[in-house]
Design a protein around this nucleic acid. Sequence first.
DNA 1: TTGAAAGCGCTAACAG
DNA 2: CTGTTAGCGCTTTCAA
Lengths: 328, 328
Amino acid sequence: MVTIYDVARLAQVSPATVSRVFNGTSVSAEKVAAVRRAAKSLDFTPNRAARSLRRQSSEVIGLVIPDIENPYFTEMARGVEDVASEAGFSVVLCNSDSQTEKESTYLQIAIAEHMSGVIIAPASDRTRLDGILATGRPVVAVDRGTTYDIDGVVMANRAAGTSAAESLLAAGYRRVAYIGGPQEIDTAAERAAGWRSAIAGTVSDADAEELLRFATFGVDGGRQAMEELLALPAPPDAVVAGNNLIGVGAIQVLTEHGLTPPETGVAVIGSLPFTTLSPTAVTVVRLPARHMGVTAARMLLERIAGDDQPPRTVVLRNELQPASAARG
Amino acid sequence: MVTIYDVARLAQVSPATVSRVFNGTSVSAEKVAAVRRAAKSLDFTPNRAARSLRRQSSEVIGLVIPDIENPYFTEMARGVEDVASEAGFSVVLCNSDSQTEKESTYLQIAIAEHMSGVIIAPASDRTRLDGILATGRPVVAVDRGTTYDIDGVVMANRAAGTSAAESLLAAGYRRVAYIGGPQEIDTAAERAAGWRSAIAGTVSDADAEELLRFATFGVDGGRQAMEELLALPAPPDAVVAGNNLIGVGAIQVLTEHGLTPPETGVAVIGSLPFTTLSPTAVTVVRLPARHMGVTAARMLLERIAGDDQPPRTVVLRNELQPASAARG
DNA sequence: TTGAAAGCGCTAACAG
DNA sequence: CTGTTAGCGCTTTCAA
């Protein structure tokens, strides 16, 4: 392993000077050149373990997400990665599998590994951040808020629910159902509330009750809830899916029943990146996943750089992409 | 920050003993208990930066993939992650964006960060591994092979192409086209060769030439190639898609032309995790992405543990899931 | 089995 | 601007 001592010897300077060259503090032009030349010829790379031991920090940030296989989160991860690597930081991606326990383990590792900070999409509101916050490391919450007083990036969930439902109503559908994620997740509840306010007046309260389903996240949850809705005495003629995977499940079931959109109206909160459906058949409330990652990464990097304003929460806007195809 | 010295003082032992407790070398039962108690009460976590500086290695492995937004690679990443975290290793996910240059940067970081090893899905056959291999770190190639003499996990690409095409032929289609990834990527070429051998005899050589398209990876590549095929004087009545994203693009175009499968036969090499299509309409050659990740991670961990048999290449089998729906 | 002590490679005072 | 020096927290000889 090549160390700064090897470089120093070859460049005829002290190790400290080599270190300075690699850290941008003032060194005379000739010595900078000599050091760079020596470093290059020896193919020297600074040892990050030593550096982070000494500096008590490392150019690594942690990103904890509940599901690495959900395109929503990978798009977000992509945004984080781009900003971080631009700034010379690496990203350790941690898959919490929606388990608070796994989350804690990764947070511990973040500390032990001297990571500079963490971006976390909390698995639930029971997520424990005390340990990592006590170390003084910045933490930014994405997608969902937390009970802690920290930076956050979320989106307008209620508005997403409302505009999805309104778009369907505007297209002429009359009984607009809703399938959302678990009720205890606040983002799911907010989106449902948005839908509820939009359909108020178009159906009776009792009907609204019946048209509202809380499923598990994921394709299966969407499938099951859609089957239930179709089995209703008065089934809906349109449905809002609370997230991308639920949307996939719902559309699958609809297709199997010969009710391919726009036969039954469908609006999905979240993108369907790999849908084989013609993009015109379904209304999509595009979620700014990448943007969310970018924003969170920038905030975190600022904190790492020493920014100490009071915690901010940024609310990102969604973008409605209405289905262009009319009802069949 | 709590150090082994704090723990040692509280437990009334030497720092060396604390270290031994955390590394499983022989310590008397009472001292082990005392140390554990002290460590727990102080909430001590060993400092990994210090450990890896001292040991010249860290419990971190790198995973370099060309596209974090492709479900094929995230499924693979999931497999790697599961095995690694089971063994107490963290995974740093690096997105090379199919760029050899970004790959090299990440490989450099892997060295500087003292990572124990790397699993890489090479962006191309120009991937340079010399630097990292020179450090003695184990590297396992996944998805594609390399020009280096290292461990690898690949799948039966030629067989995948053959069975996809044969399945379509068996279902009664007569002109089976193929859309694959870039010709210079060997896996793409192999899959195409498999298709070619299956359709030999069903169409003339000139026709086969016309029915073969090399596209860019990605949905757009699939869309464009499918449009070209449909514009042919004698368009195909079925198509094999060389990967999942190309399949999505091809099916989108088919749907827009009113040729929804199984109207036109479609076989996809790779899974369509979020397809909104009824799963029965399309033949899928399921690629063992997760299994590939699991296998690679196990191999890497063995190497890290000191295994030094000659390099092995594992070839994983694919699984054909024929479309069950008959032609409409 | 246990402790003392010497570093791993780097950075950050402190002098000069 | 530059060199000397003292650790960061841990592991690992070497003795005891």
